[in-house]
Write a protein that binds this DNA or RNA. Structure first.
Lengths: 137, 137
DNA sequence: CTGTATCCTTAGGGATACTG
DNA sequence: CAGTATCCCTAAGGATACAG
């Protein structure tokens, strides 16, 4: 929630200070790849994040302007989470991390088509996801 | 040091279970970008990792076969750390994370040339680093 | 449904001293 | 130089109950 001073001025370090934990990027994965938008959706993911951690990470990501909250136009009580442009700029990092995981964890359950397309058609793949999600913004 | 069971079979999650902390990728950065090879070199980095954490992470990365230890041929007492092929496969992830950091942290101290080349000539850039480091393996 | 709040346990990590 | 070991504190995080 608070991060007073940077450990260094290295850009790699900067990214790690924001995303260097084992939960933040999973939320971004849910938003980017799984089409999730609601608090309950994130809670339901396979990794079973607990509610206090989820709330904490959503706050941090919002403070960093990686995600933003909006009201569901239909149901006023529902809150929608979306990636900002800054968040969408994490797609390449997210994809590379996923491809590395897929390569060295053969038992993974991601669709083969997804992996192959991300790997062999990277630029178009990213563009496609961007425009799909941008439509919602 | 021990990681009994995976939280899920998602490849993104797999990567995060190994590298989802704020130190591991910095060591890989030192190996990949800064030409560092020795324990003391890692200790000296700007982020000031403490010695117990460094030793812990080096062990984890070795267990995961992302790095490997060898003896310095000249000085028998010296130990050299190198990236394995699996570790070199993290270059894309590392670079994308760094580019994102560079974009949103304008005060970063990475050489402009480095960032521009990584961004605009990504494939060749990765190939270049690979062959340079492979020469040492 | 979207969180907060609390309790409690473990893991992360800084500082520092020490060893072959 | 390349670690180990210890001390000690804080942050992370699981479980669960509760609230608007």
């Amino acid at each position: 929630m608070k991060r007073a001073k940077h450990r260094s001025d290295c850009p790699t370090n900067f990214t790690l200070e924001i995303l260097g934990d084992s939960w933040s990027l999973l939320i971004i994965r849910d938003l980017a790849f799984k089409g999730k938008s609601y608090y309950g959706d994130f809670l339901d993911s396979d990794e079973k994040i607990s509610t206090n951690i989820l709330a904490n990470r959503l706050n941090m990501l919002e403070v960093e302007r990686i995600i933003k909250k909006t009201q569901d136009p239909n149901k006023k009580s529902k809150i929608i989470y979306r990636l900002t442009n800054k968040g969408l700029d994490l797609l390449p990092t997210l994809i590379e991390a996923t491809l590395w995981g897929a390569k060295y964890y053969p038992k993974h359950n991601a669709p083969k088509k997804f992996i192959i397309r991300a790997r062999d058609n990277r630029v178009e793949f990213i563009k496609e996801i961007r425009t799909k999600l941008k439509g919602k913004i």
